[in-house]
Amino acid sequence: MTDPSPRRRPRLPFSPWHLLLAPLALLFAVPLIWLGLSSVMSDAEINRFPPALWPSGIHLGGYRFVLGNAMFPRWFANSLIVSAVAVVSNLLLGTLGGYAFARMRFGGSRVLLVLMLATMAIPFQLTMIPTFLVMRKLGLVDTLGALIVPSLVTPFAVFLLRQFFLSLPRELEEAAWIDGCSRLRVLFQIVVPLSRPALSTVAVLTFLTTWNDLSWPLIALNHDANYTLQLGLTTFRGQHHTQWSAVMAGNVITVLPVLLAFLAAQKTFVRSITSTGLKG
C-alpha cells in the first residue's frame, strides 16, 4: 500500500495512532479479561503446563467453593457495611461541616479550616501506630468499629463541599432566611438539592477508598470473621494458593462491585477523580 504520493505519508484506512493505542488498550484490558476467564476454569486446566488460555467450558467450582465453604459472604457483608456507613456519614458530616465553613461565622473557624486542610498532607504511616493505640483504648480493635470510626468523615469531604457551597449564589438562601427558615432547613431543602455533583463526588471517592482499603483493616483486625473483602482475599490466597480458580472467583467478587459501579456511572467517576486533581 505504499502510495507514492509526493508529500503525504502512506495512507491507512484509519489514523496511525490506533497502531499505538489498540495494542496498549489491549494490554491494559487483558489482565482483567484473564481474571474473568480463569475464575470459570477448572483447577486441572489452570494447573497444567502450559496452562490453558481459554476455558473449555464454564466451571463454577471456584464460585461454589468461595460462596459455600469460605467466609466470602461474611467478608462481603463487612465491606458493604463499612463502605455504606462511610459514604452516608461523609455525606452528612461533610455537608454540615462544609456548610458551616462556607456560610457561617464563628470564632476560630479560619484556624480550624487551615488545621483541617493541613491534616490532608499527613501521611498514613505517621498516624497508623497511634491510631491503632487509640482504637485499642476505645475497645474497638478487631471490630468493624475500628474501620468505621476513622472513616466517618475526611477533611477532603468537608473541604470539597465547602468549596462547592461557596460557588452557589447566596441569594437563594437569603430568600429562605427572610422567610424565617432555620439553618438546618435552608441547608437541607435549598442547598443540598443543588449540590448533587459535589455530593456524588464525595460518595464515589469515599466508596472507592473504603471498599479498596487494605492496610488499615490489616492493622486493626485479627479474626477472619471480621475481615473485609480485601483482607479476606489476601489471606485466602495465602491459604489456598493451589486452588487458583477459587482464588480468582473470590477476586472477581472483590472487584465486581467497584467495576460495575464504575461502568454504570463512568462520567461521575471520572469527574470525581479529576476534581481531586484540578484543584491542586
Binding site: L93, A100, F101, R105, L112, I122, L126, V134
Partner: peptide
C-alpha cells in the same frame, strides 16, 4: 446562637479529623 449552631455543625468532623490525625501525629 449562630456560632453555637456552626460549632454543632463542625464538631463531629473536628473530633474525628483532628482527633485521629493531630493527636496521632504528636503521639507518633
Amino acid at each position: 446562637r449562630e456560632a453555637a449552631t456552626a460549632w454543632a455543625f463542625v464538631l463531629p468532623s473536628v473530633l474525628v479529623i483532628l482527633g485521629l490525625s493531630v493527636v496521632p501525629v504528636l503521639w507518633s
